[in-house]
Design a protein around this nucleic acid. Structure first.
Length: 601
RNA sequence: UGCCCGAUGGUGUAAUGGUAGCACGAACGACUCUGACUCGUUCUGUCUAGGUUCGACUCCUAGUCGGGCAGCCA
């Protein structure tokens, strides 16, 4: 099973419905737009995580269900926080997440393209479209590719008397703004004439003024109860180079100004974002309406972002974990990042399934991590090949099988398959079983191996424990058992029932492999609820063991998923991979409904 | 003591004035060469108070609780 195959699973679930899709459906019905175009607009200042995945699934899902398009656009208006490393990882992660599902909807542009002039309804207009599907040299959209056009829109706003250059310092600007329950005061520079504003704005671009000396502001209403309408800043001076635009600019637009115009330039029809931007919507509309643009304007819709128990999604905190070494980088399998999830063996389809389960609402909730784990198991169960592996080995000697003798056992690769396929396992005198699967003093209802008891070695035969061998310290060193070879497949007593069936590997036909057992990164459901989230790091989130694995696993490749029977789902690590010496990551344990006596769940 | 948004079982959601349903979870049971999967049964819900209506989760009013807004971040 290749990574590509995994990504192809479960692409046929019924189209979900939610309040945003309802709006889109109405717009489709009324033929308001020729084509539905959405966008996913990350800022390249961190890695994508499962929270972003909800937005990706929504935006690409809408495009997919309406034969539309979803642009990947980097919202890169703040060069001091952004980096090309993030551009690359985000591009990769988006492609991974939509692979086999919405590839055909991914809007990208011809490499190096910028918005071009056109006439629309007899009016001058600017637009940038997607490169045709399959075009050779393509790249994501970048807001920074629109800087020239956005600058021109700013000039137009000045000419309309709707923007002005302000000389207030950042501190003064804050003081003049007032507070949510107290109106702001107009800047003394608010009523500069258009010619002076234009001149000053040009000199800001020319680099005549230091950082923070002047800004461009929209002229709206300093007394508005909506803080974002109190003459919001449109441009600030930053004498720094940009990772994508180079050193061409020392003047950068702010989010509110760049975002709505980027949406317009790309022909976005539905601009979907998270709830915290709800109060920005009047500004989004104000800017687009003020500029008297010829084409149908995009509209912004907001939904609640994803929260999942025992995870954190704050970029700042995730960066902190990386920088402080609490994890091994952004791609650590314990991280909620998409690259971490991929390395952990979580299929993209499972993340899409989660998005479908949680839906889209305006209610801010915390999703039970059980929903996520359910989605993962649901995707992995049908596709993960079954293998036998012993993580905490205990030696068992089958005293009635001579050394060197081999009994071949056919093992089913996946009971979920319609057509059963098998592989051969070797049963030999010495095998390993899981130490948990033997109890010298068994608790009630324990139906694995115990002294004098019987258990089935899966795919092989029933064994009986005759003797427990211990060292001087009283530690069990091996079990001496008798194999009932008549209970093998095809044997006379194959139908003999025993309560327990356990996994095992032959001591002479197994490989040693490092297996990394991951658990949740935090010990509390809402680690982000307190300032000191690091206090709740799970000290046992990674346990490394050397397991005994059935031989066939020696050829396992990154991107493949296996179920180690009775243990969980595992995948070869894609970072520490040496052909012939795979290191395995545990994706997730199997659901375990056996309540150990005395251990409430 | 400003403005905006929200509230349905333990969790995520559906019902768009007409039987409160689904999934997860939990409990019990069946099945089982994975204590998995699968199957069956059960469990728990409309924030509060008024109002409109033959009928309200849905509409109105007030309240309660939660979230957001005072970056030259996005």
């Amino acid at each position: 099973m290749s990574a590509a195959n995994i990504a192809n699973v479960s692409t046929t679930t019924p189209a979900p419905s939610d309040f945003i899709r309802d709006i889109v459906a109405q717009d489709v019905a009324s033929q308001r737009f020729a084509k539905i175009v959405t966008r996913f607009p990350p800022e390249p200042n961190g890695y994508l995580h499962i929270g972003h995945a909800k937005s990706i699934c929504l935006n690409f899902g809408i495009a997919r269900e309406n034969n539309g398009q979803c642009n990947l656009r980097f919202d890169d208006t703040n060069p001091v926080k952004e980096d090309i490393e993030y551009v690359d990882s985000i591009t990769h992660d988006v492609r991974w997440l939509i692979s086999g599902w919405a590839d055909q909807c991914l809007g990208q542009k011809t490499k190096g393209a910028v918005p071009t002039a056109q006439i629309f309804n007899d009016k001058p207009d600017f637009h940038i479209g997607a490169a045709p599907l399959g075009a050779p040299e393509v790249e994501a959209f970048f807001a920074s590719d629109y800087f020239e056009q956005i600058y021109a829109y700013a000039q137009q706003l000045i000419k309309l008397g709707m923007a002005y250059v302000d000389d207030l310092t950042p501190e003064e600007t804050e003081a003049y703004r007032g507070s949510p329950d107290r109106p702001g005061r107009p800047s003394p520079w608010r009523d500069r004439c258009i010619a002076e504003n234009l001149d000053l704005f040009g000199r800001m671009r020319a680099g005549e003024f230091p950082n923070g000396a002047r800004s461009l502001r929209a002229k709206i209403d300093m007394t508005s109860p909506n803080m974002w309408l109190r003459d919001p800043l449109l441009y600030r001076i930053r004498h720094v180079a940009h990772h994508h635009a180079g050193d061409k600019w020392c003047l950068y637009p702010l989010y509110d100004f760049a975002h709505c115009l980027s949406d317009y330039l790309e022909g976005i029809t539905h601009s979907v974002c998270t709830l915290e931007f709800e109060v920005h919507r009047p500004l989004y509309d104000w800017i687009l309406q003020s500029l008297e643009l010829p084409r149908t304007l995009p509209h912004q819709y907001e939904f609640a972002k994803l929260n999942v128990g025992y995870m954190i999604f704050s970029k700042r905190r995730l960066l902190q974990l990386v920088e402080e070494g609490a994890v091994e980088g952004w791609e650590d399998p314990r991280m909620p990042t998409l690259s971490g999830a991929r390395r952990r063996g979580i299929p993209a389809s499972a993340i899409r399934r989660l998005a479908a389960i949680v839906g889209v609402t305006k209610y801010e909730s915390v999703t039970d991590i059980a929903l996520f784990e359910h989605a993962v198991r649901e995707e992995l169960n049908p596709i993960a090949a079954r293998r036998l592996a012993v993580l905490h080995p205990m030696k068992v000697v089958l005293t009635n099988i001579p050394a060197g003798e081999t009994w071949v056992c056919a093992a089913t690769n996946n009971p979920q398959d319609e057509v059963t396929t098998t592989r051969d396992l070797a049963l030999t005198r010495e095998v390993f079983i899981e130490s948990d699967d033997f109890a010298e003093i068994p608790p009630p209802k324990y139906f694995r191996l115990k002294p004098g008891g019987e258990v089935r070695l899966k795919y092989a035969c029933i064994i009986r424990c005759d003797e427990v061998i211990k060292d001087a310290a009283g530690q069990i060193t091996e079990l001496r058992c008798t194999a009932d070879l008549t209970t093998r497949a095809g044997g006379a007593n194959v139908d003999k029932k025993v309560k327990g069936t356990i996994h095992w590997v032959s001591a002479s036909h197994c490989i040693d492999a490092e297996v990394r057992l991951y658990d949740r990164l935090f010990t509390v459901p809402e680690p982000g609820a307190t300032d000191d989230f690091r206090k709740h790091l799970n000290p046992h989130s990674l346990q490394v063991v050397t397991g005994k694995l059935e031989e066939s696993l020696v050829n396992a490749q990154p991107g493949e998923s296996f179920q180690f029977e009775r243990l969980g789902y595992f995948t070869p690590d894609n970072k520490n991979f040496t052909p012939g010496r795979p290191v395995f990551n545990r994706t997730l344990t199997l659901r375990d409904t056996w309540v150990k006596p005395g251990q409430p769940k």
